[in-house]
Write a protein that binds this DNA or RNA. Sequence first.
DNA 1: TACGTCATGTAAGTCGTTACATGATTGG
DNA 2: CCAATCATGTAACGACTTACATGACGTA
Lengths: 182, 182
Amino acid sequence: MNVRTLCLGILSFAQMTGYDIRKLAAEGNFSHFCEANYGSIYPALSQLTKDGFVVFTDEALDGKPPRKIYSITEKGHVHLFETLDKQPGPDRFKSEFLFYSLFQDKMQASDFRKLLVRKIAETRDTLESLEKANDCCDHEPSHFALGYGVAMNKAVLDYLKKYLASFDTTQKQVTQNLSDKD
Amino acid sequence: MNVRTLCLGILSFAQMTGYDIRKLAAEGNFSHFCEANYGSIYPALSQLTKDGFVVFTDEALDGKPPRKIYSITEKGHVHLFETLDKQPGPDRFKSEFLFYSLFQDKMQASDFRKLLVRKIAETRDTLESLEKANDCCDHEPSHFALGYGVAMNKAVLDYLKKYLASFDTTQKQVTQNLSDKD
DNA sequence: TACGTCATGTAAGTCGTTACATGATTGG
DNA sequence: CCAATCATGTAACGACTTACATGACGTA
């Protein structure tokens, strides 16, 4: 789904600024299954405004810097649910880490180990933030989406930890064999 | 990682045609963590050739249509491992399905159920093909990458199946409550 | 004979990333 | 006062997708 649809969807939950949308999409409850930066969000909001799918009010409070609060229109709602009527495309997963891992036997063992350890830490962090978000959230559908992310990351974390353990065992044996030969 | 690096990496395992690369990247053992089409692979191979990272032999056997068999050069190897020295970017997961799911309470229950059922079927298929690939494969690093995919998909499948079950229970109760009121 | 697979490529367009540019407010 | 956060936007570039164009071989 493109950034326009993402913005429209987010705005269907609450009115907010482009800045807020980016936060949700890049750091918040949506971030584990989509992404969007300012560079794509602001143009998307312009387009949505042109299309009449959203409107904004220019809020220029006292000393505060002006900000545009966007909200979805009836036309926007209709468009959103028309989009949602088509069946969703497949999930997409891209992992540079897995690509790298294909060459693990061609790197220094210690280098690959570092990759593993870092990946484990990252996954743990992601998992924790998803679980936290899930606890704070009382919107049932978001619960489902967050739970999906939790389940995925738990499985990955588990897999990586087991692999690290077996990796270390193997390395110990290699070291052992080397010293045996001495 | 871009398509050029992907091609280079794949060619570091074996020489092959652009057609073969696409098969691996879009349907084969690499497909669960990357993607690439003809439209990006052929231009990437041209570029890699210009850069001297790969070379090809024009194979025009008897009646057969001509094909270009690409192989990685020493320079290409060096470049690949230089790339691999930088630390990998984060995994990226995008799910239109999860985006749709955020609106489950705004759709017909039966429509969302269909989405769920389809997703379960898709996940099961993915899982099976990964497991199959994993059984046939004796390259240890690929084993790791495939196992990662298996673990992820197993967790997702499990999650979805449980959710479907609870979804059906809830729906039955709703129906029950409705008929109670009659 | 017709369909599926093998095989290569281009061109137009879409889409998004990165970096830049700017500036006010808030809190330590 | 300094850093972080709030806030909006543009421009250049890079990257990939989709559709098109072509054709031979094998097999049912």
